[in-house]
Design a protein around this nucleic acid. Structure first.
Length: 833
DNA sequence: GATTGCGCGATTTTT
DNA sequence: TCGCGCAATC
């Protein structure tokens, strides 16, 4: 085991060697945190002889858990790591709750509601309480409820808390407490837990059932918590309970990277850890293996402006590297162009790959200008974040069937699919079912079973009975068939596949393929689960919660990957029926599916593309070259987060995270003018830029050459970088046009700015036109051939042809810069010159 | 029942 | 500005 410690620095070694008692590892960015965690676990097992079954490691993402498991496996060189409990808080607790559900009155096959499901339930209860859904907006209400749950405030406590009630009254939502209560009751009735419940119910389980607590306290003799700075109150309390018997609790985190308070994370958890236990061993990992010293110095100096933190200072033996470039551009579009151009430049000069670049931003909306420019320059890129595979309507519909099969209490699922595909169960009938269910205190499913008795007649009744029959048929399969076999039949018999197959639109095709992909992934999960199944030491059959199914591998049998062509649906169901539901049961499948995110089955993780993402999404990642855009007041720090010191400090930590993502090169850009909500707004440079020590930064206008702009910042000496970007690369229109439009920045001395930014050397497909300052759409009802016009995007041109009906006239315009375009006058804005 | 159109709102989002 | 969600409509 000696070599486990090889390659660790002194502090890392200290953290690994510490065996018993509470341990806090304060791990700065890029300090080898994962290495320490994994080595520590391997060492516990390999050197101290701790049984893998007795070790629990909690992470925040599936990805982190999977990576840890893999690395431990490698370190140990055997298969013992498979017996570790490594997973996200949510997946580990879901797994435990699944086994203990009866204590709490939930079915073992309880459904896990994702955020959309939760909102949908909220919508329902708000309606049922006869409240205005404009006042009680689902996402607002959900945030409030979620915050309460994360803070361990029950509906009863909520209803009695003066401070909370006051706050709700002030927000004109006096009935919040009732909504919260109704929401909880409804979820319970539905046999469902939302994300927050997975934590909350786990806590209640441990709190209220001493035997259960005892069981897990003695099972998990060693507990490790990753990203401790992001834990919320509930997670804190759970860890405390679990660790109480042995106090072998190791928490790892970096208070400077706490950026999820809006999700209930409490930075106090890590700040106060030393007070929670006697004799807390604290190890600080301050040596950074990632960034240049310049970048680290910037990060260190910036974060010093925060008051509330654990003292530490990152250091490195790496070279100073280059200065951080602080770049001012005129508009958000210029920012996109500047970045795309700089990437091109760096690729050529320094042989970087696309994947060496990341563009980070505060808000998702900022991705647009980058996207346009990258596309124009044919630089491959990928945006991370956005709608997840599992949130797509067709996927949720399909899963809706699987959910109702496994858990008939799940009203959300039932409502979703009872008339999809359309089978003649109309709105009125559905409402009737719901009303009756509510009145007689039964589930909607039970109401459905008694459709006739409750007075549903005719076609509706027949449809309902046929529907019931079908679902019951699927249910009858559960016992002897695995998740895939059931899902296969669902696809075949419900008509979903047929419906999508018949939709020949592009979206329809995509939806069809998504369902195929879902089925593929279920198949793969089944194969995998059967391989990885294991018997727990206490005899419980467990499913491995870790590995999500990858969805890119071809289907078994090596065919086209299309497991399910509608046309081929007559083919026999997949052979090889397993011993039954068992480890690969539909219930087990559903339990983990909701906890997956797109990142968990990313097929082209290693593709050579520029990566665009929010700073939040970048946490934990690193890139050779990083651009951070939108360094402007009210954007970053965001206007919504500058009202309290706490908020501002979190924004600063976010900036710290952004800076410390960079290994070699870092650009910070800000635009003077930016379109926001369709309005052009002027922003001051971010205050965080002022916190960057001048000696570590080059501050320039994009392209350089501009002096004395007097922004209160030093735009002095042109760096090598400026010269590089400065002169002699043809002329550009954008900055000049922007300058023309807006004039010199108000309050800023100095003559008109010279064109500073230079258009990319590869001419774009559409030459961006900046409309004249006085651009006003003209009345085009009398537009004639030969008229000279200006278009907001395409620029100046001449009308060469008029066609189309009088109510929908179409003009063909020959543009100076962009060739001939057909312009629909009803939509496009043209100015007649 | 699907389609269109208007009005509103718009941080971040590991699970 | 843009996208979405709901309401009106054939």
């Amino acid at each position: 085991m000696h070599d486990l410690l090889a390659g660790l620095n002194e502090q890392q070694r200290e953290a690994v060697l510490h065996k018993d008692g509470p341990l806090m590892i304060v791990a700065g960015a890029g300090s080898g945190k994962t290495k320490v965690l994994t080595t520590r676990i391997a060492y516990l097992m390999g050197h101290y002889g701790i049984d893998a079954f007795n070790i629990l490691a909690l992470t925040f993402t599936n990805k982190a858990a999977a990576e840890m498991k893999e690395r431990i496996q490698k370190l140990l060189g055997n298969n013992e790591a498979r017996n570790l409990y490594i997973g996200t808080f949510h997946s580990v607790f879901a797994r435990i709750l699944r086994g203990e559900a009866q204590h709490l009155g939930y079915p073992n096959n309880f459904t896990i509601y994702d955020t959309d499901d939760s909102r949908s339930v909220i919508k329902t209860v708000v309606q049922e309480l006869n409240l205005d859904d404009k006042t009680y907006k689902p996402n607002v209400v959900h945030n409030r409820i979620s915050a309460a749950k994360n803070a361990l405030i029950t509906p009863e406590e909520y209803a009695q808390d003066h401070h909370i009630l006051q706050e709700d009254a002030r927000q004109n939502r006096p009935a919040m407490a009732r909504v919260y209560d109704a929401y909880c009751k409804r979820c319970f009735k539905n046999g469902a837990m939302d994300f927050d419940d997975l934590l909350l119910k786990m806590y209640e389980l441990l709190r209220d059932f001493p035997s259960v607590l005892h069981k897990y306290q003695h099972k998990f003799r060693y507990i490790l918590v990753d990203e401790y700075q992001d834990t919320n109150t509930t997670q804190y309390q759970i860890t405390k309970l679990l660790a109480a018997a042995h106090e072998n609790l190791c928490v790892v985190g970096d208070d400077a990277q706490s950026i999820y308070s809006f999700r209930g994370a409490t930075i106090e958890n890590i700040l106060q850890f030393q007070k929670d236990y006697d004799d807390v061993k604290v190890v600080k990992l301050e040596r950074n293996y990632r960034s240049t010293s310049t970048i680290l110095n910037v990060a260190n100096d910036v974060i010093k402006n925060n008051k509330n933190q654990l003292p530490k200072e990152l250091w490195t033996e790496a070279d100073a590297g280059e200065k951080v470039r602080i770049i001012r551009v005129m508009t958000d579009n210029d920012e996109g162009r500047y970045v795309a151009d700089a990437i091109q430049e760096q690729k050529l000069r320094n042989h970087f790959r696309n994947a060496d670049f990341a563009i980070l931003y505060r808000t998702n909306a900022q991705s647009r200008s980058y996207e346009e420019c990258l596309r124009r320059m044919n630089i491959p890129y990928r945006i991370f974040g956005g709608i997840s595979f599992y949130q797509r309507k067709e996927i949720k519909d399909f899963l809706g069937y699987l959910r109702i099969i496994v858990n008939t209490r799940d009203e959300e699922a039932l409502k979703r699919i009872i008339n999809y595909p359309a089978r003649g169960i109309g709105k009125t009938s559905i409402e009737k079912l719901m009303t009756v269910a509510n009145d007689r205190n039964m589930t909607m499913w039970q109401a459905l079973e008694q459709a006739q008795q409750i007075g549903i007649r005719g076609g509706s009744l027949e449809s309902m009975q046929a529907f019931l029959q079908m679902i019951k048929y699927f249910q009858s399969m559960l016992k002897n068939n695995n998740a895939y076999e059931v899902a296969f039949q669902v696809g075949k018999h419900t008509g979903i596949i047929k419906e999508l197959f018949n939709d020949k639109s592009a979206e329809g095709l995509a939806r069809y393929e998504n369902i195929q992909e879902l089925l593929n992934s279920i198949k793969e999960w089944v194969d995998d689960a059967e391989n990885r199944s294991m018997i727990d030491e206490d005899g419980t059959l467990l499913e491995n919660p870790g590995q999500p199914p990858a969805t890119d591998a071809p289907a078994s049998g090596g065919d086209s990957g299309m497991l399910f062509n509608y046309d081929a649906s007559q083919a026999p169901a997949p052979a090889g029926a397993q011993q039954g539901g068992g480890v690969a049961s539909l219930g087990a499948y559903l339990q983990q599916i909701t906890l997956l995110t797109d990142a968990d089955n990313d097929k082209d993780e290693n593709a050579d593309v520029v990566k665009l993402m929010t700073i939040h999404a970048a946490k934990g990642l690193e890139f050779p070259c990083v651009f951070v855009g939108g360094m402007e007041e009210s954007l970053f720090p965001n206007a919504m987060a500058i009202n309290t010191r706490e908020e501002l400090e979190e924004e600063r930590r976010l900036f710290y995270v952004a800076v410390t993502r960079a290994k070699h090169k870092l650009w910070l850009t800000y635009a003077q003018n930016r379109y926001r909500f369709g309005q052009l707004v002027m922003n001051d440079p971010s205050r965080f830029l002022d916190e960057v020590p001048p000696q570590y930064a080059d501050r320039t206008m994009a392209g350089g050459g501009l002096r004395n702009q007097g922004t209160g910042m030093n735009f002095g000496g042109a760096s090598a970088f400026d010269r590089l970007h400065g002169g002699g690369r043809g002329s550009s229109n954008s900055a000049a046009a922007a300058e023309k439009r807006y004039g010199p920045p108000p309050g800023k001395p100095g003559g008109p700015a010279k064109p500073s930014y230079v258009a990319p050397s590869q001419p774009p497909k559409v030459k961006e036109h900046q409309p004249s300052a006085d651009f006003v759409a003209s009345d085009t009802s009398n537009l004639q051939v030969g008229d000279k016009v200006e278009h907001q995007k395409f620029g100046f041109g001449v009308v060469v042809k008029m066609e189309g009906a009088s109510h929908n006239p179409i003009a063909t315009v020959q543009f100076d810069q962009n060739g001939e375009k057909k312009i629909m006058l009803n939509y496009a804005k043209l100015r007649i010159l």
